[in-house]
Design a protein around this nucleic acid. Structure first.
Lengths: 225, 225
DNA sequence: GTCTATATGTTGATAGAC
DNA sequence: GTCTATCAACATATAGAC
């Protein structure tokens, strides 16, 4: 996993598709993502990123303005499709059975990252999982900002769905349980990325949904004596 | 939470207790912990740490040799007592009811950090929680090394305890579920530190144990269809 | 759009005085 | 044990040529 991106990537003819614009930005985003996964925001340097992308530091600053903005773009690129898909799944559930149950809600929450992983190469998959874990726990301020920006609406929407599924639950408790369930996902992705688990992705997701569904339901009551 | 440690701490007469040795090392450990909580390993600098401790960079290097060693000592100081207490609780359970059940095992795992938090001041508590979360997710290599060093034996011991509590479970599945349960703890501590949750510590721990117990039992079967 | 060159600051660590 | 002074290496960012 370490040192996936050491050698400088030389520009090639195919880098610039026939009818398209430069892909320098895309290569920078890829490289930024890679180093973020390996070292975190504070641990990665623009030099390392631009070197891996095969461009100069100034090119990166020309396109993105700063390290912060580059990383923000790279993270958004990954997280936004996942969250869109989460909403899509939840919308679908609510359209078909107006009050989806706890398991369905949690499945809609957990499934998208696994789907995206399935569509990717092995390298991208490992990467995505590490990025997800990192995004949730990197102390750098800007990462925290993105976290809030991206998780705010998802959190609200899915908390409400949990309340609907369990009308007796306190809204604050529902938010807390969703938050805890996020921890489960992070740990799953992290564990898989670190090869801690030897199970296939489908089993992993199934275990995750089972664990969370039973856990949320059990911890839903106001006073867990 | 940010900027808890900006002003340089001036040495005072009371810093050197009457009959004792210098407490410079202790102050350095405190400062290192504080900055690690706020910024992570790569985000903190020796200058910031030593400035907060009221000593020079060279004094820190005299005592610890390197940033790496300083941080290692600071983390070990916090984690080791917690793990000792975990073993103590588990030993106690096994002495009294030779096969503790899932809930008892998980309670022995979760309780110590909360106990330690209860014995601390509010500031120390916030700090401890952030450190715990950070320790588990900081990408810096040395942090990963400490993680393995400190969690190795705990993981093994508690996985075995889970297998004993659920004889039908696959050992690999037990290790995975324990790993997931760690994610729950991290998220709880993190959420509490970030003031996401407005509940008191006892309720929080109770929710955590409930969630994990139900989750582990539900996800224990070999094939979660 | 991308480069080279450079400005300006910070880093971790050490040498040597006291 | 602790300091001041200093090091080489590295950081992010920009100016200006092409």
């Amino acid at each position: 996993m370490r040192d996936l991106a050491t050698a400088r990537r030389e520009p090639q003819p195919s880098d610039r598709p026939p009818g398209g614009a430069s892909d320098t930005k895309a290569r920078l985003l890829d490289a930024a993502e890679l180093f973020f996964a390996e070292r975190g925001f504070d641990g990665m340097s623009m030099r390392a990123v631009t070197n891996a992308a095969g461009v100069s530091v100034s090119a990166a600053n020309y396109h993105f303005g700063s390290k912060l903005a580059l990383m923000g773009a790279a993270l958004r690129r990954r997280v936004e499709p996942i969250n869109r898909r989460r909403f899509e799944l939840l919308d679908g559930l609510e359209a078909e059975a107006s009050v989806p149950n706890v398991e369905q809600v949690l499945d809609a929450f957990y499934r998208p990252p696994f789907e995206q992983a399935a569509e990717s190469t092995e390298a991208q998959r490992t990467l995505m999982r590490t990025v997800a874990a990192r995004l949730w726990h990197d102390p750098a301020e800007m990462v925290a900002a993105i976290r809030v920006e991206l998780f705010g609406e998802v959190s609200e929407r899915f908390s409400v769905a949990l309340v609907n599924a369990m009308p007796e639950i306190e809204p604050a408790r529902a938010r807390m349980l969703l938050q805890l369930s996020v921890g489960l996902l992070i740990q799953t992705l992290n564990g898989e990325a670190a090869s801690f688990f030897s199970t296939d992705a489908d089993t992993l997701r199934a275990v995750l949904v089972r664990y969370a569904t039973a856990g949320v339901i059990a911890a839903a009551q106001e006073d867990p004596s």
